[in-house]
Design a protein around this nucleic acid. Structure first.
Lengths: 181, 181
DNA sequence: AAAGAACCGTTGTACTATACAACCAAGATT
DNA sequence: AATCTTGGTTGTATAGTACAACGGTTCTTT
């Protein structure tokens, strides 16, 4: 309660927007049994958006150590031991230049290492350094812990299903992601 | 267009991860029935993160009309007819200055209107203009349509449950959101 | 009532993330 | 060889954001 925040902590509109909605969805706080598809989709849209929106704001707080979004890239590099910059760009829908600069930053911080590929002399194979792995490990641990905490009260079944839904949602590919600003 | 993203799903796993863990976008795994809590949480964490990351990238494509992230703010203003700038800042964990500038942009585009409050002369009550409402309606429609498309194959039950999970997840409040970098 | 604290919003400054375009270097095609 | 293609870097520009300092307001306290 640091500040006066009368309206809110949660995204779902306190008051169902009267009219002006394109859908009859009144954004129920908890989806009742007979929720029509449109309503559910609307809620999903809004909630995912809310998540994405807040995620950015919260990011800095979680690992201020890694000053960059490039934490993600580092994670990816680690995940598949050794990858090219282009892979990262493709995977995250980023421009080559962006990735290039991010990597430059990571390298300057001593978190990644680039090695020329023996075969193709154009590519550089990226590897996390020791420091990179360490940073990554703690960051990951922190984040996972935070999620564990947040999801503490959930039943195992719900967790599994939620995870499943998310996988399914994301599996559709990044192309047409209609998400939040 | 020589995009940097020919495909995000086809990138060759330069070195396939030895473990069971793959990247969501590459290998949509399905959470097996007996998934332990930790695994589920891990998946949830990763998938939500992935979503957040991609969301930003996709944002511009969806509504290029509204050049700003401020679409969100506009939506919020509309949602609760009339609100103050500080509310927005608090709600989205943004700095006052950021909100101020975003609003300036929206105003310059003729999408919002600020009126001094009769009572308190410090505050300005924000209202969407006609144009603002229109823009918002179409943007919302587009986005919803995109989601509908993406979720086309889902059963009504799954949609309802997914929506429910998201609500539940987000309801915990923005404070400790441990999300993606 | 005067002084001070608290609040709302703007402006100055700075930095990150990002895109697009132009470019260079190394392979691949013809 | 000449030309396309691909991987990466650099130049330039633009959002979005934060932090700090500030000028008005309103509320509290003396």
């Amino acid at each position: 309660m640091s500040d006066a925040r009368p309206d809110a902590t949660t995204e779902p509109p306190a008051t169902p927007p009267p009219g002006a909605r394109t859908t009859p969805a009144d954004a129920p706080e908890t989806a009742p049994p007979g929720t029509p598809r449109e309503a559910s989709v609307d809620v999903i849209q809004r909630e995912l958006t809310a998540f994405a929106r807040r995620a950015r704001a919260a990011a800095a707080r979680v690992h201020p150590e890694i000053p960059l979004v490039s934490y993600t890239l580092l994670a990816h590099i680690e995940e598949r031991r050794g990858c090219r910059a282009t892979d990262l760009a493709a995977h995250y829908l980023l421009d080559k230049s962006t990735v290039s600069r991010q990597l430059a930053g990571l390298e300057k911080l001593g978190l990644v290492e680039r090695r020329p590929a023996p075969e193709d002399h154009r590519v550089q194979v990226l590897h996390p350094t020791e420091a990179g792995l360490a940073v990554l490990a703690t960051a990951q641990a922190n984040r996972l812990a935070a999620y564990q905490e947040r999801l503490r009260d959930w039943s195992g079944e719900d967790l599994a299903r939620f995870a499943d839904y998310l996988l399914r949602y994301n599996a559709a590919g990044p192309e047409d992601l209609p998400a939040s600003p």
